[in-house]
Write a protein that binds this DNA or RNA. Sequence first.
DNA 1: TTAATTTTGGAACGTTCATTTCAAATAAAT
DNA 2: ATTTATTTGAAATGAACGTTCCAAAATTAA
Lengths: 193, 193
Amino acid sequence: MPKTEVFNKEIVLNQASHVFHTKGYNAASMQDLVDATGLNRSSIYNSFGNKHNLFLECLKVYQNKYQRSISNLLLKANCPLKAIESIFELYLEEIVKDNDNKGCLITNCKSEMANQDSTINNFLINNQESTLALFEDLVNQGQENSSINRNRTPKDYALYLFTAIQGFRMTGILIDNKQQLQSLINTTLQNLK
Amino acid sequence: MPKTEVFNKEIVLNQASHVFHTKGYNAASMQDLVDATGLNRSSIYNSFGNKHNLFLECLKVYQNKYQRSISNLLLKANCPLKAIESIFELYLEEIVKDNDNKGCLITNCKSEMANQDSTINNFLINNQESTLALFEDLVNQGQENSSINRNRTPKDYALYLFTAIQGFRMTGILIDNKQQLQSLINTTLQNLK
DNA sequence: TTAATTTTGGAACGTTCATTTCAAATAAAT
DNA sequence: ATTTATTTGAAATGAACGTTCCAAAATTAA
Protein backbone atom coordinates (compact mmCIF):
# COMPACT_ATOMS: atom_id res chain seq x y z
CA MET A 1 0.00 0.00 0.00
CA PRO A 2 2.71 2.53 0.82
CA LYS A 3 4.52 4.54 -1.67
CA THR A 4 7.98 3.05 -1.67
CA GLU A 5 11.22 4.92 -1.46
CA VAL A 6 12.14 6.03 -4.95
CA PHE A 7 15.77 7.07 -4.54
CA ASN A 8 18.79 4.83 -4.28
CA LYS A 9 20.15 5.20 -0.77
CA GLU A 10 23.66 4.22 -1.79
CA ILE A 11 23.83 6.84 -4.51
CA VAL A 12 22.49 9.48 -2.14
CA LEU A 13 25.05 8.55 0.49
CA ASN A 14 27.83 8.81 -2.05
CA GLN A 15 26.60 12.23 -3.08
CA ALA A 16 26.37 13.34 0.54
CA SER A 17 29.79 11.88 1.27
CA HIS A 18 31.25 14.00 -1.48
CA VAL A 19 29.90 17.13 0.19
CA PHE A 20 31.19 16.18 3.64
CA HIS A 21 34.49 15.11 2.17
CA THR A 22 34.98 18.38 0.32
CA LYS A 23 33.80 20.80 3.00
CA GLY A 24 34.11 18.88 6.24
CA TYR A 25 31.23 18.22 8.59
CA ASN A 26 30.70 21.66 10.06
CA ALA A 27 31.12 23.63 6.87
CA ALA A 28 28.72 21.37 4.98
CA SER A 29 25.24 22.83 5.19
CA MET A 30 21.96 21.02 4.84
CA GLN A 31 21.37 23.13 1.74
CA ASP A 32 24.61 21.77 0.25
CA LEU A 33 23.34 18.27 0.90
CA VAL A 34 19.92 19.02 -0.59
CA ASP A 35 21.60 20.43 -3.70
CA ALA A 36 24.05 17.56 -4.06
CA THR A 37 21.53 14.77 -3.59
CA GLY A 38 18.64 16.35 -5.46
CA LEU A 39 16.44 15.16 -2.63
CA ASN A 40 14.01 17.27 -0.72
CA ARG A 41 14.91 18.38 2.75
CA SER A 42 12.05 16.37 4.18
CA SER A 43 13.16 13.26 2.38
CA ILE A 44 16.62 13.56 3.85
CA TYR A 45 15.23 14.00 7.34
CA ASN A 46 12.75 11.17 6.76
CA SER A 47 15.44 8.79 5.61
CA PHE A 48 18.42 9.77 7.72
CA GLY A 49 17.06 11.53 10.78
CA ASN A 50 19.43 14.45 10.94
CA LYS A 51 22.69 15.81 9.60
CA HIS A 52 24.77 14.08 12.23
CA ASN A 53 23.31 10.68 11.49
CA LEU A 54 23.61 11.19 7.75
CA PHE A 55 27.28 11.95 8.26
CA LEU A 56 27.70 8.80 10.31
CA GLU A 57 26.17 6.75 7.53
CA CYS A 58 28.51 8.40 5.05
CA LEU A 59 31.46 7.44 7.22
CA LYS A 60 30.28 3.84 7.25
CA VAL A 61 29.85 3.74 3.48
CA TYR A 62 33.33 5.20 3.07
CA GLN A 63 34.79 2.69 5.51
CA ASN A 64 33.04 -0.23 3.83
CA LYS A 65 34.27 0.84 0.41
CA TYR A 66 37.89 0.63 1.59
CA GLN A 67 37.34 -2.55 3.54
CA ARG A 68 36.04 -4.18 0.38
CA SER A 69 38.96 -2.90 -1.69
CA ILE A 70 41.43 -4.13 0.88
CA SER A 71 39.76 -7.53 1.15
CA ASN A 72 40.18 -7.88 -2.60
CA LEU A 73 43.83 -6.90 -2.37
CA LEU A 74 44.45 -9.47 0.33
CA LEU A 75 42.98 -12.24 -1.81
CA LYS A 76 45.29 -11.37 -4.69
CA ALA A 77 48.42 -10.75 -2.64
CA ASN A 78 50.83 -13.65 -2.49
CA CYS A 79 52.86 -12.25 0.40
CA PRO A 80 52.00 -10.27 3.55
CA LEU A 81 54.54 -7.53 2.83
CA LYS A 82 53.22 -7.17 -0.71
CA ALA A 83 49.73 -6.94 0.77
CA ILE A 84 50.77 -4.05 2.99
CA GLU A 85 52.47 -2.45 0.02
CA SER A 86 49.32 -2.71 -2.07
CA ILE A 87 47.25 -1.12 0.71
CA PHE A 88 49.54 1.90 0.60
CA GLU A 89 49.30 1.88 -3.17
CA LEU A 90 45.53 1.84 -2.96
CA TYR A 91 45.68 5.10 -1.04
CA LEU A 92 48.29 6.42 -3.45
CA GLU A 93 45.92 5.88 -6.38
CA GLU A 94 43.16 7.52 -4.37
CA ILE A 95 45.28 10.60 -3.79
CA VAL A 96 46.39 10.89 -7.39
CA LYS A 97 42.85 10.33 -8.66
CA ASP A 98 41.31 12.99 -6.41
CA ASN A 99 41.68 16.35 -8.10
CA ASP A 100 40.33 18.18 -5.07
CA ASN A 101 42.95 16.71 -2.71
CA LYS A 102 40.39 16.20 -0.03
CA GLY A 103 42.40 13.71 2.01
CA CYS A 104 40.77 10.86 3.89
CA LEU A 105 37.19 11.38 5.09
CA ILE A 106 37.85 9.42 8.27
CA THR A 107 41.16 11.11 9.06
CA ASN A 108 39.58 14.49 8.43
CA CYS A 109 36.69 13.56 10.68
CA LYS A 110 39.10 12.50 13.39
CA SER A 111 40.89 15.80 13.16
CA GLU A 112 37.67 17.81 13.17
CA MET A 113 35.49 15.89 15.62
CA ALA A 114 37.42 13.44 17.79
CA ASN A 115 36.87 13.66 21.53
CA GLN A 116 33.80 15.83 21.08
CA ASP A 117 31.00 13.46 20.13
CA SER A 118 30.79 9.95 21.57
CA THR A 119 29.10 8.36 18.55
CA ILE A 120 31.79 9.67 16.25
CA ASN A 121 34.47 8.71 18.73
CA ASN A 122 33.21 5.15 18.90
CA PHE A 123 33.33 4.92 15.14
CA LEU A 124 36.86 6.28 15.06
CA ILE A 125 38.10 3.96 17.79
CA ASN A 126 36.45 1.01 16.09
CA ASN A 127 38.08 1.98 12.80
CA GLN A 128 41.44 2.32 14.53
CA GLU A 129 41.19 -1.06 16.25
CA SER A 130 40.28 -2.93 13.10
CA THR A 131 43.03 -1.24 11.11
CA LEU A 132 45.57 -2.05 13.80
CA ALA A 133 44.34 -5.65 13.94
CA LEU A 134 44.66 -6.01 10.18
CA PHE A 135 48.21 -4.69 10.16
CA GLU A 136 49.22 -6.73 13.19
CA ASP A 137 47.99 -9.85 11.48
CA LEU A 138 49.81 -9.07 8.24
CA VAL A 139 53.05 -8.20 10.02
CA ASN A 140 52.81 -11.39 12.01
CA GLN A 141 52.50 -13.41 8.82
CA GLY A 142 55.29 -11.40 7.24
CA GLN A 143 57.65 -12.12 10.09
CA GLU A 144 56.81 -15.80 9.90
CA ASN A 145 57.66 -16.03 6.22
CA SER A 146 60.66 -13.74 6.81
CA SER A 147 59.57 -11.01 4.41
CA ILE A 148 59.39 -8.64 7.40
CA ASN A 149 62.18 -8.25 9.95
CA ARG A 150 61.78 -8.95 13.64
CA ASN A 151 63.20 -5.65 14.93
CA ARG A 152 59.80 -4.79 16.36
CA THR A 153 56.73 -6.68 17.46
CA PRO A 154 53.72 -6.99 15.14
CA LYS A 155 51.84 -4.62 17.46
CA ASP A 156 54.60 -2.02 17.18
CA TYR A 157 54.73 -2.27 13.42
CA ALA A 158 50.94 -2.14 13.23
CA LEU A 159 50.91 1.19 15.05
CA TYR A 160 53.77 2.37 12.85
CA LEU A 161 51.83 1.50 9.69
CA PHE A 162 48.57 2.93 10.98
CA THR A 163 50.38 6.17 11.78
CA ALA A 164 52.14 6.14 8.43
CA ILE A 165 48.83 5.80 6.60
CA GLN A 166 47.39 8.77 8.42
CA GLY A 167 50.48 10.81 7.72
CA PHE A 168 50.37 9.69 4.11
CA ARG A 169 46.78 10.88 3.78
CA MET A 170 47.67 14.21 5.36
CA THR A 171 50.69 14.70 3.13
CA GLY A 172 48.55 13.82 0.11
CA ILE A 173 46.42 16.90 0.75
CA LEU A 174 49.17 19.26 -0.37
CA ILE A 175 51.45 16.92 -2.31
CA ASP A 176 49.88 14.83 -5.02
CA ASN A 177 52.95 14.11 -7.10
CA LYS A 178 52.89 10.38 -7.75
CA GLN A 179 56.65 9.89 -7.89
CA GLN A 180 57.21 11.69 -4.62
CA LEU A 181 54.45 9.74 -2.91
CA GLN A 182 55.66 6.43 -4.33
CA SER A 183 59.09 7.19 -3.00
CA LEU A 184 57.54 8.04 0.37
CA ILE A 185 55.87 4.63 0.47
CA ASN A 186 59.15 2.94 -0.36
CA THR A 187 60.92 4.83 2.40
CA THR A 188 58.19 3.95 4.87
CA LEU A 189 58.20 0.27 4.02
CA GLN A 190 61.96 -0.19 3.83
CA ASN A 191 61.77 -0.02 7.62
CA LEU A 192 60.07 -3.42 7.69
CA LYS A 193 62.46 -5.19 5.35
CA MET B 1 46.04 61.36 23.66
CA PRO B 2 44.51 58.09 22.64
CA LYS B 3 43.37 55.50 25.04
CA THR B 4 45.84 52.69 24.50
CA GLU B 5 45.02 49.06 24.09
CA VAL B 6 44.61 47.60 27.53
CA PHE B 7 44.72 43.89 26.83
CA ASN B 8 47.75 41.77 26.09
CA LYS B 9 47.50 40.65 22.49
CA GLU B 10 49.60 37.56 23.08
CA ILE B 11 47.41 36.35 25.93
CA VAL B 12 44.29 36.97 23.89
CA LEU B 13 45.73 35.04 20.97
CA ASN B 14 46.57 32.13 23.23
CA GLN B 15 43.05 32.14 24.60
CA ALA B 16 41.59 32.28 21.11
CA SER B 17 43.98 29.56 19.96
CA HIS B 18 42.67 27.32 22.66
CA VAL B 19 39.13 27.72 21.36
CA PHE B 20 40.12 27.05 17.74
CA HIS B 21 42.29 24.16 18.81
CA THR B 22 39.52 22.52 20.82
CA LYS B 23 36.62 23.06 18.44
CA GLY B 24 38.20 23.61 15.07
CA TYR B 25 37.73 26.72 12.94
CA ASN B 26 34.16 26.24 11.78
CA ALA B 27 32.74 24.97 15.05
CA ALA B 28 34.31 27.83 17.01
CA SER B 29 31.84 30.68 17.21
CA MET B 30 32.54 34.32 17.74
CA GLN B 31 30.65 34.00 21.02
CA ASP B 32 33.08 31.25 22.10
CA LEU B 33 35.95 33.60 21.35
CA VAL B 34 34.31 36.47 23.21
CA ASP B 35 33.77 34.23 26.23
CA ALA B 36 37.29 32.78 26.17
CA THR B 37 39.10 36.08 25.76
CA GLY B 38 36.89 38.16 28.01
CA LEU B 39 37.09 40.82 25.33
CA ASN B 40 34.15 42.56 23.84
CA ARG B 41 33.07 41.63 20.33
CA SER B 42 33.96 45.11 19.14
CA SER B 43 37.42 44.89 20.59
CA ILE B 44 38.07 41.66 18.79
CA TYR B 45 36.90 43.11 15.50
CA ASN B 46 38.86 46.28 16.14
CA SER B 47 42.05 44.41 16.84
CA PHE B 48 41.85 41.45 14.51
CA GLY B 49 39.45 42.40 11.75
CA ASN B 50 37.43 39.26 11.53
CA LYS B 51 37.27 35.63 12.62
CA HIS B 52 39.29 34.42 9.68
CA ASN B 53 42.11 36.82 10.34
CA LEU B 54 42.08 36.09 14.06
CA PHE B 55 42.47 32.43 13.23
CA LEU B 56 45.38 33.17 10.94
CA GLU B 57 47.11 35.06 13.74
CA CYS B 58 46.50 32.13 16.07
CA LEU B 59 48.11 29.83 13.55
CA LYS B 60 51.15 32.09 13.40
CA VAL B 61 51.49 32.25 17.18
CA TYR B 62 51.22 28.47 17.32
CA GLN B 63 53.82 28.06 14.60
CA ASN B 64 56.20 30.52 16.24
CA LYS B 65 55.90 28.75 19.57
CA TYR B 66 57.10 25.49 18.03
CA GLN B 67 59.75 27.16 15.93
CA ARG B 68 61.19 28.68 19.09
CA SER B 69 61.08 25.37 20.93
CA ILE B 70 62.76 23.62 18.04
CA SER B 71 65.44 26.28 17.72
CA ASN B 72 66.26 25.74 21.38
CA LEU B 73 66.45 22.00 20.85
CA LEU B 74 68.81 22.42 17.93
CA LEU B 75 71.17 24.51 20.00
CA LYS B 76 71.34 21.84 22.68
CA ALA B 77 71.54 18.84 20.38
CA ASN B 78 75.01 17.51 19.77
CA CYS B 79 74.05 15.34 16.81
CA PRO B 80 71.59 15.77 13.91
CA LEU B 81 69.85 12.44 14.56
CA LYS B 82 69.44 13.32 18.22
CA ALA B 83 68.00 16.66 17.14
CA ILE B 84 65.39 14.91 15.01
CA GLU B 85 64.67 12.60 17.92
CA SER B 86 64.16 15.50 20.28
CA ILE B 87 61.76 17.15 17.85
CA PHE B 88 59.62 14.04 17.94
CA GLU B 89 59.93 13.98 21.70
CA LEU B 90 58.78 17.57 21.87
CA TYR B 91 55.55 16.54 20.19
CA LEU B 92 55.34 13.48 22.41
CA GLU B 93 55.40 15.68 25.50
CA GLU B 94 52.81 17.92 23.91
CA ILE B 95 50.48 14.97 23.34
CA VAL B 96 50.91 13.57 26.82
CA LYS B 97 50.47 17.00 28.39
CA ASP B 98 47.26 17.78 26.50
CA ASN B 99 44.36 16.25 28.39
CA ASP B 100 41.90 17.15 25.64
CA ASN B 101 43.88 15.33 22.94
CA LYS B 102 43.31 18.10 20.48
CA GLY B 103 46.07 17.12 18.09
CA CYS B 104 48.08 19.71 16.18
CA LEU B 105 46.38 23.02 15.37
CA ILE B 106 48.12 23.24 12.01
CA THR B 107 47.48 19.63 11.03
CA ASN B 108 43.84 20.01 12.04
CA CYS B 109 43.62 23.20 10.04
CA LYS B 110 45.11 21.46 7.02
CA SER B 111 42.56 18.71 7.31
CA GLU B 112 39.67 21.11 7.76
CA MET B 113 40.56 23.94 5.41
CA ALA B 114 43.26 23.07 2.90
CA ASN B 115 42.52 23.76 -0.74
CA GLN B 116 39.56 25.96 0.15
CA ASP B 117 41.03 29.27 1.21
CA SER B 118 44.14 30.70 -0.45
CA THR B 119 45.42 32.59 2.61
CA ILE B 120 45.24 29.45 4.71
CA ASN B 121 46.74 27.40 1.92
CA ASN B 122 49.69 29.73 1.63
CA PHE B 123 50.32 29.43 5.33
CA LEU B 124 50.14 25.64 5.15
CA ILE B 125 52.44 25.41 2.16
CA ASN B 126 54.88 27.77 3.81
CA ASN B 127 54.80 25.70 6.98
CA GLN B 128 55.35 22.54 4.96
CA GLU B 129 58.29 23.97 3.04
CA SER B 130 60.08 25.20 6.11
CA THR B 131 59.56 21.92 7.95
CA LEU B 132 60.82 19.97 4.96
CA ALA B 133 63.82 22.29 4.68
CA LEU B 134 64.66 21.83 8.37
CA PHE B 135 64.50 18.05 8.12
CA GLU B 136 66.43 17.98 4.88
CA ASP B 137 69.17 19.99 6.48
CA LEU B 138 69.31 17.79 9.56
CA VAL B 139 69.32 14.58 7.53
CA ASN B 140 72.06 15.95 5.35
CA GLN B 141 74.20 16.66 8.40
CA GLY B 142 73.32 13.26 9.83
CA GLN B 143 74.45 11.48 6.73
CA GLU B 144 77.68 13.42 6.73
CA ASN B 145 78.52 12.44 10.28
CA SER B 146 77.25 8.91 9.56
CA SER B 147 74.54 8.88 12.25
CA ILE B 148 71.96 8.55 9.45
CA ASN B 149 72.20 5.96 6.69
CA ARG B 150 72.36 6.83 3.00
CA ASN B 151 69.58 4.51 1.84
CA ARG B 152 67.56 7.56 0.80
CA THR B 153 68.30 11.16 -0.12
CA PRO B 154 67.88 13.92 2.46
CA LYS B 155 64.82 15.13 0.51
CA ASP B 156 63.26 11.67 0.71
CA TYR B 157 63.89 11.35 4.41
CA ALA B 158 62.62 14.87 4.99
CA LEU B 159 59.28 13.99 3.42
CA TYR B 160 59.27 10.76 5.40
CA LEU B 161 59.81 12.63 8.66
CA PHE B 162 57.31 15.36 7.82
CA THR B 163 54.74 12.69 7.07
CA ALA B 164 55.63 10.78 10.22
CA ILE B 165 55.10 13.89 12.34
CA GLN B 166 51.66 14.45 10.88
CA GLY B 167 50.75 10.81 11.41
CA PHE B 168 52.13 11.02 14.92
CA ARG B 169 49.93 14.02 15.68
CA MET B 170 46.90 12.24 14.28
CA THR B 171 47.59 9.07 16.22
CA GLY B 172 48.07 11.14 19.38
CA ILE B 173 44.43 12.24 19.16
CA LEU B 174 43.16 8.82 20.17
CA ILE B 175 46.26 7.26 21.71
CA ASP B 176 48.03 9.21 24.41
CA ASN B 177 49.88 6.38 26.11
CA LYS B 178 53.44 7.56 26.49
CA GLN B 179 55.09 4.16 26.23
CA GLN B 180 53.23 3.30 23.06
CA LEU B 181 54.05 6.65 21.51
CA GLN B 182 57.69 6.46 22.56
CA SER B 183 57.91 3.06 20.95
CA LEU B 184 56.31 4.50 17.82
CA ILE B 185 59.00 7.16 17.64
CA ASN B 186 61.70 4.53 18.03
CA THR B 187 60.18 2.47 15.24
CA THR B 188 59.92 5.51 13.00
CA LEU B 189 63.51 6.59 13.58
CA GLN B 190 65.12 3.17 13.37
CA ASN B 191 64.53 3.57 9.64
CA LEU B 192 67.20 6.26 9.49
CA LYS B 193 69.85 4.38 11.45
C1' DT C 1 40.39 70.47 32.89
C1' DT C 2 39.77 70.10 28.43
C1' DA C 3 40.40 68.01 24.04
C1' DA C 4 41.38 64.10 21.30
C1' DT C 5 41.09 59.39 20.36
C1' DT C 6 40.19 54.57 21.28
C1' DT C 7 38.12 51.02 23.52
C1' DT C 8 34.02 49.35 25.32
C1' DG C 9 29.15 47.56 25.98
C1' DG C 10 25.34 45.93 24.11
C1' DA C 11 21.98 45.96 20.97
C1' DA C 12 20.93 45.22 16.24
C1' DC C 13 22.04 43.81 11.49
C1' DG C 14 20.81 40.56 7.83
C1' DT C 15 21.97 35.81 6.77
C1' DT C 16 22.28 31.22 7.34
C1' DC C 17 21.77 27.39 10.18
C1' DA C 18 19.41 22.64 11.27
C1' DT C 19 15.04 21.19 11.82
C1' DT C 20 9.79 21.02 11.67
C1' DT C 21 5.43 21.36 9.73
C1' DC C 22 1.71 20.12 6.78
C1' DA C 23 -1.00 19.93 2.84
C1' DA C 24 -0.52 17.97 -1.71
C1' DA C 25 1.17 14.45 -4.67
C1' DT C 26 2.25 9.72 -5.26
C1' DA C 27 1.99 4.85 -5.62
C1' DA C 28 1.02 0.27 -4.16
C1' DA C 29 -2.60 -2.90 -2.34
C1' DT C 30 -7.34 -3.77 -1.79
C1' DA D 1 -11.60 3.21 -7.63
C1' DT D 2 -10.69 3.56 -3.09
C1' DT D 3 -7.87 3.11 0.74
C1' DT D 4 -3.53 3.54 3.07
C1' DA D 5 0.97 4.92 3.92
C1' DT D 6 4.88 7.60 2.31
C1' DT D 7 7.29 10.81 -0.03
C1' DT D 8 7.41 15.40 -1.56
C1' DG D 9 7.48 20.53 -1.94
C1' DA D 10 7.85 24.71 -0.01
C1' DA D 11 7.33 27.62 3.52
C1' DA D 12 8.12 28.56 8.30
C1' DT D 13 10.54 28.02 12.76
C1' DG D 14 13.57 29.89 16.08
C1' DA D 15 18.17 29.86 17.23
C1' DA D 16 22.86 30.96 16.07
C1' DC D 17 25.94 32.82 12.94
C1' DG D 18 29.61 36.67 11.72
C1' DT D 19 29.62 41.37 11.52
C1' DT D 20 28.33 46.34 12.21
C1' DC D 21 26.93 50.24 14.64
C1' DC D 22 27.06 53.97 17.90
C1' DA D 23 26.66 56.18 22.13
C1' DA D 24 29.09 55.98 26.48
C1' DA D 25 33.20 55.24 29.07
C1' DA D 26 38.05 55.54 29.43
C1' DT D 27 42.55 57.28 28.99
C1' DT D 28 46.29 60.20 27.75
C1' DA D 29 48.38 64.63 26.09
C1' DA D 30 47.91 69.35 26.08
